[in-house]
Structures are given as structure tokens and as C-alpha cells.
């Protein structure tokens, strides 16, 4: 499933960059470039047109959020380019900015997630093919900070679990695997959630993510 997915990597820590290259090529991705600063990423994307870019948020020269800025800029020029932002901290503000226009082909993960190699690879594949991958930490923060807690309290425990996984960008099949239940059961929970929270029903997974996030953020 990873064959022919072309990945550009922008990460300023050499040790992590090398690790990522080794891990991803081992898993069958094609690495177009592995660079250490935003400028190099820009020219690399223009030249090699990868399917997805894995971008560290904090990079030179200011070590604040130039990765995010560069990603948003690249995205405007290449709407089909998947972006997986990669950071040691989760800032809800960054997630909101990233998802303000479209959730298709967007991911935002803690760097720790590479330790669970399969989950990480799965998230990258999802982003490359136009899906969404949000770190559980982002979803937890949004759930915790949501002003709609009264609506949320009407959900059952299982429904909240499903909601969290849905917000991370997972498909019904993936949610079913994660919770060890049948896909039919997941569909039923999802329908319940949409009814209880009064969300617009949509087919595409990434639109579903956006609907949930807008709900949590409102």
C-alpha cells in the first residue's frame, strides 16, 4: 500500500531525519528528498512534486513555526500535496490554522508517534491519499477545551471513543479495528453521534473530521 508514494522530509535534527528516511524507505516509500530547512523544502517540492511532505514545525532560522508557514504556503500552490506536520508539542492553535480551509490531505502528529511504526505509516498513507490524520492529543485538547460540553455529555462512553477516533481522521473500518467491534456497529454509533450533536452528515472521511472539529471548536 505504500508503493509509489513519494515523500519529501523536512526535519532539522539530523538524527531524526536519517531515522525517518531509513524507516520510510524500509516500508517501501520513495523518498524524494530529505532536507533540513524550509527553503530547501520549497525548492524540493517544486522540483520533485512529491505526494506528501513530512514537515517539522520548528525549523531554522527562528525555530518557531516556520514549518507550518511553509506547509500552508506549499499547500496553497499545490492543493493536492499532502502535508504531515510533525512536532514535539501539540498546539491547538496550529491545528486550527492548518484545518481552517480544508482537512483533506492534512496531518498533524506528535513526533513520538513514529515509535508505533505501523500507526505512523498508516497515518502517512492516509494523508498521502487525501485523508486526515490528527494526533489523539489534538483531539483530547479540543474535547477538553470545547464549550459544547453539554451536548457532549449526551454521548455514551463508546460514542465518545468513536467521536475521538473519527476526529483523528480514521475511517469506519479503522475505527472498528481499533475498538474491536464490527463495522456495522461503528456505523450505528456514527449515525447516533451525528444526530445527537446535530452535525451535517457527509460521506468523505475528511469532511467528517472537519464537521467534528468545527463542532468542538465552536
Amino acid at each position: 500500500m505504500t508503493d509509489n508514494i513519494r515523500v519529501a522530509i523536512a526535519e532539522d535534527s539530523a538524527i531524526l531525519r536519517d531515522g525517518l528516511v531509513q524507516l520510510l524507505s524500509d516500508r517501501g516509500f520513495e523518498i524524494t528528498d530529505a532536507v533540513s530547512d524550509p527553503e530547501a523544502l520549497r525548492s524540493s517540492v517544486e522540483r520533485a512534486l512529491p505526494d506528501v511532505a513530512v514537515v517539522d514545525i520548528r525549523m531554522p532560522p527562528t525555530f518557531t513555526d516556520e514549518g507550518l508557514r511553509t506547509a500552508l504556503e506549499l499547500r496553497r500552490r499545490h492543493p493536492r500535496l499532502g502535508i504531515l506536520l510533525f512536532s514535539q508539542y501539540i498546539e491547538t492553535r496550529y491545528a486550527a490554522e492548518l484545518l481552517s480551509e480544508d482537512a483533506a490531505g492534512i496531518g498533524y502528529l506528535l513526533k513520538d508517534r513514529v515509535a508505533d511504526v505501523s500507526d505512523f505509516v498508516e497515518a502517512l498513507v492516509r494523508v498521502a491519499s487525501g485523508g486526515t490524520a490528527l494526533d489523539p492529543e489534538v483531539v483530547t485538547q479540543l474535547l477538553g477545551a470545547s464549550r459544547r460540553s453539554d451536548s457532549l455529555s449526551s454521548l455514551s462512553v463508546r460514542e465518545r471513543e468513536v467521536l475521538s477516533l473519527m476526529a483523528e481522521g480514521r475511517s469506519n473500518a479503522a475505527i472498528a479495528t481499533a475498538l474491536v467491534i464490527s463495522e456495522g456497529a461503528v456505523e450505528k454509533h456514527v449515525a447516533n453521534i451525528f444526530t445527537k450533536l446535530d452535525l451535517p452528515v457527509s460521506e468523505a472521511d475528511h469532511r467528517r473530521v472537519l464537521a467534528v472539529l468545527r463542532f468542538l471548536d465552536s
Binding site: L16, G19, D112, V114, A115, V117
Partner: peptide
Amino acid sequence: VALAMRLG
């Protein structure tokens, strides 16, 4: 992180 990645 790199260490965890390798062990993973």
C-alpha cells in the same frame, strides 16, 4: 524519539 523509532 529516534531511539523509540528504531526500537519500534
